[in-house]
């Protein structure tokens, strides 16, 4: 668990009200004890008038499969606060990688989960190294040499300039990696 959220106030928003009061109380105390999160309120059903600020996504453009969402939430992430330069490799098989910088040509990032690059991705990125096909790669500027998700490989065909907006790579239909404009989850 990433501890950077310690002490935060959270709002729990259920799409389908399947929990009773006892279960909610258990969830509340569990979050408090294990993760030091303070539960501000619990929203059940879809009757919420104004959506809470940090609410769970309702428009999920990636994968709608429930198991993917569950694994993503439960696993750790590693934050790398610098640029990955040529010849450097950052590997995190246990979960997702977040890079506060660029991944330069000749550099490599590998993660068991997702990869998020808050800069330009110019090197190689390999998400879902444990074979998870729902993993995604997001970068503010996308100019990678090679992408790999699970066992699907995508090689950049041209030396195009990045389009200037964030993009996301994921496995689309027919097991091909597709890259498209990243709007939000």
């Amino acid at each position: 668990m990433n501890r950077s959220l310690t002490g935060a106030t959270v709002q729990i928003d259920f799409q389908s009200p399947t929990l009773n009061d006892e279960e909610i109380d258990y969830l509340r105390s569990k979050l408090r004890e294990d993760y030091d999160l303070i539960v501000r309120g619990v929203e059940l059903g879809e009757d919420s008038a104004s959506p809470p600020i940090a609410a769970a996504p309702t428009t999920h453009t990636i994968s709608q499969t429930t198991d993917a969402v569950a694994t993503r939430d439960g696993e750790p992430s590693r934050i790398v606060p610098c640029t990955i330069r040529s010849g450097q490799t950052e590997e995190f098989p246990q979960g997702s990688l977040i890079i506060y910088g660029d991944v330069n040509s000749g550099g490599e990032v590998r993660a068991g989960g997702d990869i998020v690059v808050l800069g330009t991705l110019r090197g190689n990125a390999y998400a879902g190294t444990n074979g998870r096909l729902s993993a995604v790669i997001i970068a503010m500027d996308f100019a990678p040499l090679q992408l790999q998700i699970g066992n699907c490989v995508n090689r950049s065909s041209t030396n195009q300039k990045p389009p200037g907006y964030p993009e996301i790579a994921r496995i689309g239909p027919e097991d091909v990696i597709i890259i498209e404009k990243f709007v939000k989850f």
Binding site: R85, S86, Q88, N104, S105, G106, G107
Partner: peptide
């Protein structure tokens, strides 16, 4: 040029 820059990038990483 790209090859010199990639090598420079590698060297910068090592110097850092």
């Amino acid at each position: 040029d790209v090859s010199a820059i990639r090598d420079a990038d590698r060297i910068i990483g090592l110097l850092q």
